[in-house]
Simulated assay, not measured.
Amino acid sequence: MARLLYSVTMSLDGFIAGPGGDMSWLTPYLGPNPYVDELIGEIGSLLVGNRTFRGDDPYKDTPGEGQAFGGGWSGPQVVLTHRVPATPWPGVTFVSDFAEAVRQARAAAGDKYVNVLGADVARQCLAAGVLDEVLTCIAPVLLGDGVRLFAQPGGRTVGLERIHLSGVPLASLLRYRVLPAG
């Protein structure tokens, strides 16, 4: 069965998007990353939040604009949204039910990863106990405000076990396995 992996680049102070969902801060850190490039080949589908899907694109004004991983990946995408559009998008399935979105993304991924994109969808995956791993690329920048990597009103502790640590010129990479709640 496909495993769910939340992959994200964040600032050193814990933000994955700037104020208002701004992603332009990320553009200078999209350079070569052999670890991520290899991982992209292990992704079978995307499970994406609606704000992430329709939001700001760090690849804006580049040849990869509007494409997953700047054009480095293509395949089925499942977008979790409260408002399913009337007009279909090629390669994109819009689903309003969380459990159904996870089911469809897993089915589409086969034995590869479902790459979770979007802080709120990742939080829902953690709450449902279906998130298997977290890969965080830490960019050498402080944003001061924006969308947090993980925010849970009232707080919540999630145990993680490190399975990879490395660095490239533009980021430090940390990969964790999500531990069962207990």
Score class of each variant (00 low, 15 high):
140 P>W: 04
174 L>G: 08
63 P>M: 12
91 G>Q: 06
106 R>E: 12
163 I>N: 11
46 L>N: 02
95 V>A: 04
12 L>Y: 03
119 A>M: 04
80 L>C: 02
126 L>Y: 02
13 D>Q: 06
3 R>K: 15
121 V>K: 01
118 G>Q: 06
16 I>V: 06
63 P>L: 10
126 L>M: 05
99 A>Q: 12
30 L>Q: 00
177 R>L: 13
12 L>K: 01
128 A>K: 07
123 R>D: 06
38 E>V: 12
132 D>R: 09
141 V>Y: 02
49 G>L: 01
61 D>L: 12
1 M>F: 07
155 G>I: 01
104 Q>L: 10
24 S>R: 12
124 Q>L: 15
48 V>K: 00
83 R>W: 05
82 H>M: 09
140 P>D: 10
67 Q>E: 14
60 K>N: 10
173 L>H: 14
180 P>R: 10
44 G>Q: 01
38 E>D: 10
76 P>G: 13
130 V>C: 08
8 V>H: 03
54 R>E: 10
180 P>M: 05
53 F>G: 09
38 E>Y: 14
75 G>N: 12
121 V>D: 06
46 L>M: 15
153 P>C: 00
38 E>P: 15
172 S>Q: 13
105 A>T: 08
38 E>L: 07
159 G>D: 04
162 R>I: 15
148 R>N: 04
175 R>A: 03
129 G>M: 02
61 D>A: 08
9 T>A: 15
105 A>S: 06
141 V>F: 08
45 S>Q: 08
118 G>H: 05
26 L>C: 09
142 L>Q: 15
176 Y>A: 03
58 P>R: 01
110 G>V: 13
125 C>A: 11
34 P>L: 07
21 G>K: 02
85 P>Y: 14
114 V>T: 05
131 L>D: 11
73 W>E: 11
93 T>I: 10
162 R>A: 14
6 Y>L: 04
33 N>K: 14
160 L>W: 09
114 V>E: 15
18 G>E: 00
143 L>M: 01
130 V>L: 09
169 P>N: 13
32 P>W: 09
139 A>I: 10
60 K>Q: 13
57 D>E: 08
43 I>Y: 06
27 T>Q: 15
70 G>A: 05
65 E>K: 02
168 V>R: 09
1 M>P: 04
77 Q>A: 10
130 V>K: 04
30 L>M: 00
60 K>Y: 04
150 F>N: 00
38 E>H: 11
65 E>W: 03
13 D>R: 11
82 H>W: 13
149 L>T: 05
97 D>C: 06
177 R>C: 04
157 T>A: 10
21 G>C: 13
182 G>E: 09
58 P>D: 07
90 P>A: 11
77 Q>V: 09
81 T>C: 14
131 L>Y: 05
170 L>V: 09
105 A>N: 04
71 G>P: 00
58 P>K: 00
57 D>V: 05
133 E>F: 07
49 G>Q: 02
139 A>G: 05
148 R>D: 10
140 P>I: 03
33 N>T: 09
